[in-house]
Design a protein around this nucleic acid. Structure first.
Lengths: 230, 230
DNA sequence: ACCTGAACACCGTTCAAGT
DNA sequence: ACCTGAACACCGTTCAAGT
């Protein structure tokens, strides 16, 4: 009887599709993407899944577990979806781009990555970085620091993106309006006290987040190459 | 009468020292430092300050405002406390070190920095970076990307530090025990699937967070210098 | 085995009432 | 002007009871 139930056709209580961990995670991702982190409540999940609280806790340890699993899901898709380019340098850039785009689509991932250190997904990303640095002929001794630095940089960008996205949600303002108000505020600062910020206002208004992120990757790669030659 | 009250000696309700925004912020910092982010509740504040909820909300907009103010306070102290070294390169390293040490002492700052983008304190830090890059002869066009990259890296490290500290609180494990268990887990991973992580286990166990952070700063500085020459 | 939903403990925040 | 604390709305989580 247990075998027949495992085959999927027998018994069938009342729902044709029973609840599963995977379904819960996917539904959580939908809520997070459409309405932001604060919208993901256990209540909202029970409504969307037409179930009770206990049913969810039967498949998921707690809310932290759910958020972590959703994050792992997104990151894993990035890693498996990244094409390998001609050289390790371009592959690393593609990988970084893929992660940037994923966090752009799912800003909550940036916030979640900052909560649980060394989740499996982050470990896979770290492994990918390490291998590519190996291919780039970074000596073993320097590879540990280099991989950690790159991971921290990517994480910092992810977190900033998440913070920016959070501040846009629920406002009538879009990205451009946000940049304009920020630029206007910067322009009003005392030029004597904030000369650099002042000089940078135009670039703030015109810059592209993705391009700036990749510029940072290039700085890092140039730094690796420079240190390697010593 | 209003004037006399402002002079501070008249009327005097019942407490000799009245509540102030500054006192609330300092008390919040004490709670955060000793017991972590989750310990800072409005309830805990009222108990510690021997007051009611409304009194706190009279000086502070909400909990977010309080956390942001506490973070600003810590960062501002770092900036004003950093000595200027011989050259801009060393000054920049000192500044980074100061920030690292501050976040080491107040891990919750790392988490908070990731919540509110472009707080005043972060703007001051950004300004400092920009000026030092100017002193390092980084051309104006490249300075914007370079400063952003450096800021994102520092932010990433801050966030990772906060996450690690959070996972140590409430456990009997200290940092060394945590590193050992993590290293043990890494060592058990499939070497065919995680060759880099495997090769790096020893360095994980022996590394110093502060040194690795500074190694990252050096990588970026080398990269900035290399790109400048093109 | 899996699900239901009332109940619980605990948040941040408000506000009528005090001084 | 500043403070008090009961009350409110809303969390995540549990658990006895159902199928």
């Amino acid at each position: 009887m247990a075998k027949r139930a495992a085959n999927g056709s027998a018994q069938s209580p009342r729902r044709t599709d029973s609840l599963s961990r995977e379904l819960i995670i996917q539904t959580a991702i939908e809520i997070l993407d459409s309405d932001g982190e604060s919208a993901l409540t256990l209540r909202a999940l029970t409504v969307r899944l037409k179930t009770g609280y206990g049913a969810i806790y039967h498949h998921v340890a707690d809310k932290g577990d759910l958020l972590a699993a959703a994050t792992d899901d997104v990151i894993t898709r990035v890693l498996s979806g990244t094409a390998t380019a001609a050289g390790p340098r371009d592959t690393l850039r593609l990988l970084a781009q893929g992660l940037f785009d994923a966090i752009h689509t799912h800003p909550w991932v940036g916030a979640e990555l900052s909560r649980q250190p060394w989740r499996p997904a982050l470990l896979d990303f770290y492994e990918s970085i390490g291998r590519l640095l190996d291919a780039l002929a970074v000596p073993e001794r320097a590879r540990f620091d280099a991989a950690g630095t790159l991971l921290n940089y990517v994480l910092g960008v992810a977190v900033q993106n998440a913070a920016n996205a959070r501040h846009l949600i629920g406002r009538d303002a879009d990205r451009e309006a946000f940049l304009n108000t920020t630029a206007a505020r910067w322009a009003q600062l005392d030029p004597a006290r904030y000369p650099f910020v002042h000089a940078t206002v135009t670039q703030l208004r015109e810059h592209d987040d993705r391009e700036q992120f990749l510029a940072g990757i290039d700085i890092f790669l140039a730094g690796i190459a420079a240190l390697r030659q010593k």
